[in-house]
Amino acid sequence: MVVVGGGNSGAQIAADLAHAGIDLTWVTQRPPRYLADDIDGRALFDAATARRRALDEGRTDTGGVASLGDIVAVPPVRAARDAGLLNAGPMFTRLTPTGVEWADGTRAEADSVIWCTGFRPALAPFASLRLRGTRGRIAVDGTRAADESRLHLLGYGNWTGPASATLIGVGRPARDAARAIAGLLA
């Protein structure tokens, strides 16, 4: 199983799979940046407010919430991280018929690839698969790519379900993807 994405979705899905004992390869564009374990909604609000004030007053940009990290260490993520189960590697360069391959020729087998790169669809590694339609989108059946059964896309707005790129809307597609993948692995 390969999970792609260094944000909350990627980390949380990787943590859930790691806790379930799934053979996991987690890849990210850069090393994961976890927010401090004690960060909560109030701290995020305060950081965003301080940034807005600094910008309004012509002071140096504080970086806001983004300066704190990319991944909220919710309990399952924290537990997997602390147990050494979340080890992100660099992004592969292409999909192969049986998995993924890095620029140096290293390969990893994968029954499924969960692509959760968030608000900016990063679809270049799929070019060789010719999955993109005329509007640049990958046709999906739920979260699974219609023409590549190993690929699941999460967080792509209405591609994979209403508001699936938001916290309110990602739950159902994520559960559906997990069930579909569990069925493949059973």
Rank of each mutant, 00 (worst) to 15 (best):
G64R: 03
A66P: 09
L24A: 06
A165V: 05
S67M: 10
R53L: 15
V4P: 01
T62L: 05
I13T: 06
S149Q: 13
F92R: 05
T60Q: 13
A174K: 00
R53N: 15
V74W: 11
I13Y: 01
G171F: 08
L55W: 02
A47I: 13
A127E: 12
T166W: 07
P125Q: 04
R107M: 06
R78N: 02
L68K: 00
V74L: 15
L35I: 05
G161V: 04
G133W: 04
A54Q: 05
D111H: 13
V27W: 00
N87Q: 14
R94N: 12
S128K: 04
G63N: 11
G69D: 03
V100D: 01
D61I: 15
G69F: 04
G161S: 11
V2K: 00
W159Y: 06
T96W: 01
G84W: 04
R81A: 05
A186Q: 02
G133K: 12
V3H: 01
G142W: 02
F45M: 15
L153G: 04
T160N: 15
T49W: 11
S128G: 12
Y34I: 05
G10I: 02
A14V: 12
L167C: 10
F45R: 15
W102R: 12
L131W: 06
R53V: 15
G41V: 09
Y156W: 13
A180S: 14
E109D: 14
D176P: 06
A177D: 04
V170K: 00
